[in-house]
Nucleic acid binder design. Structure first.
Lengths: 336, 336
DNA sequence: TTGAAAGCGCTACCAA
DNA sequence: TTGGTAGCGCTTTCAA
């Protein structure tokens, strides 16, 4: 592999001149003829700049650390695509780490990324308890929170309005006449689920009829956990006519559990999910759910991270997108 | 941020000694008391080694380039998880790039990863025409092909038996009595789809009854493309009783197109997909499909890449996993 | 066992 | 406009 010195020698110039000639930002400081010679030499030798060396010297690697909780959650890919798309436009690349939603792993992953000198971090994996850790990291490099945030606006964040989404879900169920409602929550130390719960609660409180409301809190927002929580509720003797699951995976698990208990959806029980993950429109039954612009969240988060590199002191702000409610066939009016 | 020199100063030793003391492979060359002093200094200062500097010096970054075609394809996440899991065990990390299945983008992505001095490349995105490019890259760093390969065993590869999978799909449809069969193929310059086609063809040739077989080749293995191809076939006046789609997304698109043409699945037309992507068991109808151990493919590919770093000249070999056929409700016996 | 020195490949400062 | 020099932070030879 040819390095800069080889190019410089072949062109008969000093490495510093070669460096300038090949750097778009400085090539104007080089005589046209010299530049041409350098460029030609570089081409002949198939020169490509060593980004590790450059990163060491410049203190900038052009890499962004992306930390996600669980690759197995189908709502993530569109978000990651959004990030990858914007990063590519910026000439940057993603270093991806997965935490399995374990705070210990999160810390390890973040430190590893810092050691690798990523220019910024984007993460969709924070728990509320991670605030001190993130505060610490943010002293070193910019951190952008995506999807999940802390409940005040103390970090750069790109999210959507979870409370509104939760309210939409509960309001919908109430408007269909349901008054026995189960809520399957994700971990209650994650902003998304806290927001959805609050939204649901306020919608229920504002409902015309009195609503019996039972909340079960899970440790992971997965199908298995949805199944477990739903089963648990039924075994406790609470038979709801409507279920609000905090994400689509939990909704699917809940529908399974209902089926095993001899209850059909939406015949006996209406179920609302969350995220509008790919394929939820083709499930049996097609899932009523809450949608937000996930590609957009990823893309915005990446752009924000990029802009923080040039202007680290820009005012802290949260973008919060407005969700849509998507009514499908997993919810129905309460039969009398 | 404290660097090694700070640690060395604080411990009252030379940086080279500090380096050795902190490196598990060399710490035995350092006196126990000195080592203890260095370790303590490192802890006090919160020292963390700069991996960029280390990478430059050692010529090894501990990063693996992972190049995938399309994050939007739901069969990929399990594979990526498999990779990420094994890489983490190896203390490595993934640099992820997406190609959108465009060979031009693939080349850019690979060169970018080389410039960043990844230690090896794993890619699931090759087309048959990319062979010269991959050959070139492979002269510099180890390349592991996952899922997609070239048709001879000229590179390290971790795949599954596509021909067998394709044969399973076609054999199943034939055994249900179908004799008018449409095949919706992915791009025919991709080994997976070539293999599936060949397998299907040989199964059809071996069938008891004569089978009318129509193949449509798509440019991308997506829902939209499945829909387009299916519509095209119907508009050409070919009405099959069974469809083999080369992946689940295309199968879903085909089912949509059939529905729009007034044909039901499996009532009028049986449809087989491929990949057993997450959630396909919950689609309406649940999709008959071909499964392979996707997490395992990712995990093995990562381990292989890791082992190639220590032993680059190990014999070239292909692991080919054996697929399973998964019969669900999207296929049915031909009604007389 | 430790220290000294060199250098991975690059950029940026300072002179000329 | 160009060259020289220094140094990003680390590891690794070579001597002592």
């Amino acid at each position: 592999m040819a390095n800069l010195r080889d190019v410089a020698e072949q062109a008969g110039v000093h490495t510093s001149t070669a460096s300038r000639a090949l750097d778009p930002d400085h090539s104007q400081m080089v005589g046209a003829k010299t530049r041409a010679r350098v460029v030609q030499a570089a081409e002949e030798l198939g020169y490509r700049a060593n980004q590790v060396a450059r990163g060491l010297r410049k203190g900038r690697t052009g890499a962004i650390g992306v930390v996600i909780a669980d690759m197995g959650n189908p709502f993530l890919p569109p978000i990651i695509r959004g990030m990858a798309g914007s990063l590519r436009e910026l000439g940057m690349i993603a270093l991806v780490a997965e935490t399995e939603d374990d705070p210990g792993v999160l810390e390890k992953a973040l430190l590893d990324l810092l050691d690798r000198k990523v220019d910024a971090i984007i993460t969709t994996a924070v728990h509320l308890t991670d605030r001190p850790l993130i505060t610490e990291i943010n002293k070193t490099i910019p951190v952008v929170l995506a999807v999940r945030t802390f409940l005040d606006g103390s970090f750069h964040a790109v999210t959507h309005d979870d409370a509104l989404g939760g309210a939409m879900a509960a309001r919908h169920l109430c408007s269909l006449g349901h008054t026995r409602l189960a809520e399957l929550s994700g971990p209650d130390d994650v902003s998304s689920f806290v927001g959805r719960s609050r939204g649901a609660k306020s919608a229920i409180d504002e409902s015309d009829q009195p609503v019996t409301h039972r909340v079960a809190v899970g440790t992971h927002p997965t199908t298995a956990e949805g199944h477990r929580l739903m089963t648990e509720i039924l075994e406790q003797g609470f038979v709801p006519t409507a279920v609000f699951a905090h994400n689509d995976l939990m909704a699917v698990g809940a529908i399974d559990a209902l089926g095993q208990a001899g209850l059909s959806c939406p015949g006996d029980v209406s179920v609302v999910g969350y995220n509008d993950s790919p394929m939820t429109d083709r499930l049996n039954p097609p899932l009523t759910t809450v949608r937000f612009a996930s590609y957009e969240i990823g893309s915005r988060a990446a752009k924000l991270a990029g802009s923080l590199l040039d202007d680290p002191d820009q005012p802290v702000a949260s973008y919060s997108l407005t969700p849509d409610f998507v009514e499908r066939a997993s919810t129905a009016r309460l039969a009398d």
